[in-house]
Amino acid sequence: MKFIKNHLMFILPLMAILLGIEFYLVFDRTTDSYEKGLKEGYTMLVVTKKPVTLQKLKQLNPHIATLEAIKREQIVSEVAQGVSKQSKKEILAALPYFYNVGLDSYLGTSALEKIKKDLEKDSNIKRVETFGSSYSSAYRLFAFIKFLLKVFIGFMGIVSLFLIIKQMEIWKYAHRERMQVMEIFGAPLMLRAGVLFKVAIFDAFIATLLTSAVFLYVKFVWAAQSGIDLMMQKQDDLFKMTDMAILLGVALLLVIVAVYTVVFSSKGVQE
């Protein structure tokens, strides 16, 4: 019973960290296309008196990456229904040129304002519409949620790491006599700490397997039966085999750091 308790005290905090990491990986994968859509789907509207080229706009502001003309005929046919052909021609002649302008990266509202000002300096450009508020609020909300998730996982990771180190100190205390005897007979640190490494690495494997099992259950059982469209569509993203390698790598790294922290923090027998 004590044996199981001792291992659980190590495995559970390690699992908390691994679950956090895996949750972030899954969140990142499942929301990737949404984030891309928010970033790449954004365009500003530019209205010009005469046709304009991408090169010309890039000279005005280097963040401009794409330029797509909106068909003027289509605009006329939509706004001038039931109007004679001649009138349509006149409207078309008087109509300015409309463009969707894409940017090279996600920019804040102040940067958008600067682009707008740069473009409006050109006398050919009649108007620039950035749709800044809606663009910014949607993306910022998403970025904020992602940031909160990172903070939460990071905080949980730190607390769990302290628990892991605490448990490691208990193990070290439990094996202190053995380690002392080995030290007195001249055993190097790695040999003395061998027992801690063995136990910790064993628990790292167990924690990885349990975490993987949780996400495999979510992927193959829970998500399939959940009835939630997003879950069913993104079922493949819920757990990938490469995740297991990432989790094992992180788990091993953490336990090695924990063992080293505990072993090096002791002065040894020298007084």
Binding site: E177, F185, G186, A187, P188, Q270
Partner: peptide, 19 residues
């Protein structure tokens, strides 16, 4: 150096200190 020196020593304790 102490580690190395200790490998040339045999130490016996009253309470045996066996593992």
């Amino acid at each position: 150096q102490l580690q190395e020196l200790r490998t040339h020593m045999g130490i016996i304790f009253q309470d045996y200190k066996l593992i």
